[in-house]
């Protein structure tokens, strides 16, 4: 679904990532680790087409990112759920509308989906907060809401940038469980995280692989965890 073929990415100054090749297939479950500033967020952005590689080819669902129109990008985003690091909500809309936003913008906000929304909010423990505005939420609540929004379209791929950074252990287990369930339904999941405990916990539930970013390269980590 996402094919990265020898891609590199450089910001104005120097190269941040280089010689990256990776193919994300249905049912894959990846963790992405590495020190802060190593390029985890950049890597995820390359995966959903927010950034275009400076060399090499990135293909999303068979389409080269360079040849994609703006509408192609919009369509692709509907198939890739993204949990943004800073959550990115519309602050004037209540939480439930924010979570349902992907449905709204794609014109799929029908009744079935509304029932779905309630179930999803209950799952992430935000049923009581459905009418709160995003600025009224705690960091953890925002992250849970961001995850709910990322999965509401039942996307083929879920990319999550530090989805458990601000939540307690129990809730991070719960979120992980949600991602594992989605993965079992054939969705690909990529989670960027610092949290080694989370990775260990996931390994007992799912066939997860760990990608480590070091020295501008992305390597598949061995059994060192």
């Amino acid at each position: 679904m996402i094919e990265l073929d020898n891609i590199a990415y450089s910001y104005g100054g120097g190269e941040l990532l280089s010689e990256i090749s990776l193919s994300i297939q249905p049912g894959d479950f990846y963790f992405l680790t590495g020190p802060s500033g190593a390029g985890k967020t950049t890597f995820l952005k390359l995966c959903y087409g927010e950034l275009t590689p400076t060399s090499g080819h990135a293909k999303l669902f068979g389409q080269d990112v360079r040849g994609m129109s703006r509408d192609d990008h919009a369509t692709t985003r509907r198939r890739i759920g993204v949990v943004h690091q800073d959550c990115a909500f519309l602050d004037h809309l209540p939480l439930s509308d924010n979570v349902a936003l992907p449905l709204t913008v794609s014109g799929r906000d029908d009744l079935d989906q509304v029932a779905n929304l309630k179930e999803l909010l209950a799952w992430v423990g935000l049923k009581e907060r459905a009418h709160a505005l995003p600025p009224e939420l705690s960091g953890g609540e925002r992250q849970r809401a961001a995850l709910a929004r990322a999965v509401i379209m039942s996307p083929d791929v879920v990319l999550a940038d530090e989805p458990t950074g601000n939540v307690d252990w129990d809730m991070s287990q719960r979120l992980l469980q949600l991602l594992v369930e989605l993965n079992k339904m054939g969705k690909a999941v990529v989670i960027a995280t610092h949290d080694m405990n989370l990775i260990r916990a996931a390994k007992s539930k799912v066939q997860a692989r760990v990608l480590r970013i070091a020295n501008r390269h992305v390597q598949l980590a061995g059994a060192d965890l």
Binding site: E50, H73, L90, S106, R149, M153
Partner: peptide, 12 residues
């Protein structure tokens, strides 16, 4: 707001 809408797949 526009960038959030783009992120969740809104067309121009």
């Amino acid at each position: 707001i526009i960038s959030v809408l783009r992120l969740v797949g809104a067309r121009d």
